[in-house]
């Protein structure tokens, strides 16, 4: 039967020739190959100093966005928690008090919003479910911790800082959202 790739070799069991039994020519051939590798480019990435550039579709740690005036987008509708296949998201909704209009965009907001990063599978369904463009997955890596409790991230880490806004424009261009 003819092979499709034309790369297959017929295995034969014929005895080795004298040169093959001497091992040495083959060994020198192998050593030449490894010698050439001495001068090849290293593939190592020196991690803390050099970091890999993530693809725009990369899904890392979540962010809860604020709008241009610095108000939280999230209205605690719970659609992300429902969409989450890993049940990583929990929240408690609260009513906006008078005078908090510059903090929360709508009358209802999330008093508590927690994502368990150990449960999360970074599928991005919360992002797709969100009607208010409040939650996004970013290109940040979830930092490692010593305690399991520290992986449950609350609003203090998830909500973005106004002085240090997180760019999610690439995320908005990808996937289904880009087609809109």
């Amino acid at each position: 039967m003819q092979s499709l790739s034309n790369r297959s070799k017929v295995v034969s069991n014929k005895p080795m020739t004298f040169l093959e039994r001497m091992y040495l020519p083959v060994i020198f051939g192998g050593m030449w190959i490894t010698f050439k590798h001495l001068f090849k480019k290293n593939v190592t990435l020196q991690y803390p100093e050099e970091q890999k550039v993530f693809a725009p579709v990369y899904r890392g740690q979540h962010v809860l966005k604020r709008d241009e005036q610095g108000r939280e987008n999230c209205t605690a509708c719970g659609l992300c928690a429902v969409a989450c296949p890993a049940e990583a998201i929990t929240m408690i909704a609260g009513e906006r008090k008078k005078g908090d209009e510059d903090k929360y965009r709508e009358e209802k907001y999330a008093e508590v919003y927690e994502i368990n990063m150990l449960r999360c599978i970074f599928c991005g369904l919360c992002e797709e479910a969100c009607p208010k463009e409040a939650i996004f997955l970013t290109d940040r890596i979830v930092p490692s911790q010593y305690e399991r409790e520290d992986f449950i991230m609350g609003k203090d880490t998830l909500v973005e800082d106004m002085n240090n806004r997180i760019d999610i424009s690439l995320r908005q261009m990808t996937g289904k959202r880009g087609e809109k």
Binding site: T34, H37, L38, K40, K41, N42, V43, T44, Q46
Partner: peptide, 10 residues
């Protein structure tokens, strides 16, 4: 490391 295209301890 050199033979395997790596850097090695540094």
């Amino acid at each position: 490391a050199w033979f395997q295209d790596r850097i090695g301890p540094n």
